[in-house]
Design a protein around this nucleic acid. Structure first.
Length: 506
DNA sequence: TTAGGGTTAG
């Protein structure tokens, strides 16, 4: 754009309107919306008249940077210039106002339009959907003199955005014509609402599939924790061969790989270092990843590097930083990072951050400070927080606080058997077997069984999942024979397995 | 040279 601008500025006579429009378009494409507005005011001061192509470009830029006062001025220029009846100008104004939440202003433009075509109707209906006013959206939809496939799709996705899959599906079934986007919209609706089965059924029914369809199904699996299915479907996509994966496909597949296996952290650091462009998500990924693996001081160093690189941390960065402090036992540093969230970065701490702080105090053995922190929090503690406390109570053998945490936990998660197991382990450590038995009975009364923990390992390019006492493997005899051999040789080195740890299945 | 709809990562 800088070069384009130099050429533009050298045009000897005042540039004609087509050249101005080309500049507006260039700036808009490069997301330099402020430049569009500045150039527009330059143009006006030279008394060059905008034409019907100018206004949509400039108005859209106003909307992008929430410059609604400027937008209104541009609207006045358009009306004075005789463009009141232009359908492009009207539609862009509707989008601009509705995008800024001024749906009444948008409706005023819509109502005053001389000729309302289906695009204008769609924009107005989208505006209502954006304001979560499905009733008005539907009323207009039913009134629309013409409905094309884009308008239908807009309505269907409106219902989906508001979480009403039933209404969305009903409307989809009523559609006179569906294109691949209609199918993809509903497919993604099921994926995002956790209905993987409906997602799979719809995918099989689709008359035509493109990369968005495949990404929709694969993403649906990923969002619902079905990472094996992500990889299977990714492979199926490559075999069926009608479409090529794109960047989104690879992002989902790679993320699934990371959930399935435990690749070397050194590789992650190498990849991170080799990246020419790093954004906030890149930094957050490496900082949280490093912190998760216990390399707390590396995480804190990366945090400094991140700030030196000019990136502004957000709430997720701070989760990595706080957990880094937790794992290093840096209570005071953690506390000062927590305070700097608000003071230096204007980040409002969320429940996850309070949870990190409770964990920080608790793991450091400062159980009193931890519970004090819970009492002073501006929100109710969640199950994650009470479980962190309960976990620390085991390390520091504090049954009194453990029972407090346990009572809160079974209120919040009456169906989670892990909570019984955690308290039971604390009693067990102290030899309080009567309490262990009492808990076992009350757990049995709830009809719950603890799901065994599961491990994933990579063997010969595929991921194998196994549980404690797992009998599903075809070569289980051989595996258990090998395990018995290992146990035997461990014993010969006088190693005593910690049965309590084994019992947790972790 | 201008206006309306679908996917992703921390």
């Amino acid at each position: 754009m800088a070069y384009a601008r130099r050429v533009f500025d050298q045009i000897p006579d005042p540039p004609n309107i087509a050249l101005w429009n080309a500049m507006f378009k260039g700036y808009a494409q490069n997301e330099s919306y402020r430049e569009v507005l500045v150039l527009f005011s330059n143009m006006k001061s030279l008394d060059v008249m905008p034409n019907c192509f100018t206004f949509p470009l400039v108005l859209k830029s106003c909307g992008k940077i929430n410059a609604y006062l400027e937008g209104q001025e541009v609207q006045c220029v358009a009306i004075k210039g005789g463009f009141r009846a232009d359908p492009f100008v009207g539609t862009t104004l509707i989008d601009m106002y509705a995008g800024g939440g001024a749906v009444r202003e948008a409706y005023k433009v819509f109502g005053e339009m001389v000729e309302r075509n289906v695009v204008a109707w769609t924009s107005m209906i989208s505006g209502y959907i954006l304001c979560r006013d499905m009733v008005s959206a539907r009323r207009l939809f039913d009134l629309a003199p013409e409905r094309d496939v884009v308008l239908w799709n807009t309505m269907v996705s409106g219902y989906i955005e508001l979480g009403d899959m039933v209404a969305a599906r009903k409307l989809f079934d009523e559609m006179p014509n569906r294109d691949v986007m209609s199918w993809n919209t509903v497919l993604n609706g099921y994926a995002n609402n956790g209905d993987v089965e409906a997602c799979e059924r719809l995918f099989e029914e689709m008359p035509e599939r493109n990369i968005f369809s495949w990404n929709g199904l694969i993403g649906g699996y990923a969002q619902n924790g079905k990472f094996f299915e992500v990889m299977e479907t990714f492979k199926r996509m490559l075999i069926e061969g009608n479409v090529l994966p794109n960047d989104v496909t690879l992002v989902i597949a790679l993320s699934a790989c990371s959930r399935l296996g435990a690749p070397d952290l050194e590789n992650a650091v190498d990849v991170f270092k080799s990246m020419a462009r790093k954004d906030l998500i890149t930094w957050n990924t490496i900082i949280n990843g490093i912190a998760m693996h216990g390399h707390g001081s590396d995480a804190l160093n990366l945090f400094c590097e991140m700030k030196n690189a000019g990136e502004t941390p957000d709430g997720i960065t701070l989760i990595g930083i706080l957990s880094a402090c937790t794992h290093m036992g840096l209570v005071e540093d953690g506390f000062s990072y927590f305070q700097s969230m608000v003071d230096d970065y204007s980040i409002v701490p969320q429940i996850k951050h309070y949870g990190c702080m409770v964990d920080l105090f608790a793991r450091a053995g400062l159980l009193e400070q931890a519970i004090e922190f819970v009492r002073k929090m501006p929100m109710e503690a969640d199950a994650v927080i009470w479980a962190a406390l309960l976990g620390a109570c085991r390390i520091y053998k504090n049954t009194e606080l453990a029972e407090v945490a346990f009572d809160q936990l079974i209120k919040l998660e009456p169906k989670n058997p892990s909570n019984f197991v955690m308290l039971s382990n604390i009693y067990g450590d102290l030899g309080r077997w009567k309490d262990v038995a009492r808990l076992k009975v009350s757990m049995r009364d709830t009809g719950l069984r603890k799901l065994p923990g599961c491990s994933l390992i990579e063997v010969n390019d595929s991921v194998v999942e196994f549980y404690s006492l797992d009998e599903r493997h075809s070569e289980r005899e051989e595996i258990y024979r090998a395990l018995r051999g290992l146990t035997k040789s461990l014993r010969s080195f006088e190693y005593l397995p910690d049965l309590m740890e084994l019992e947790q299945g972790g």
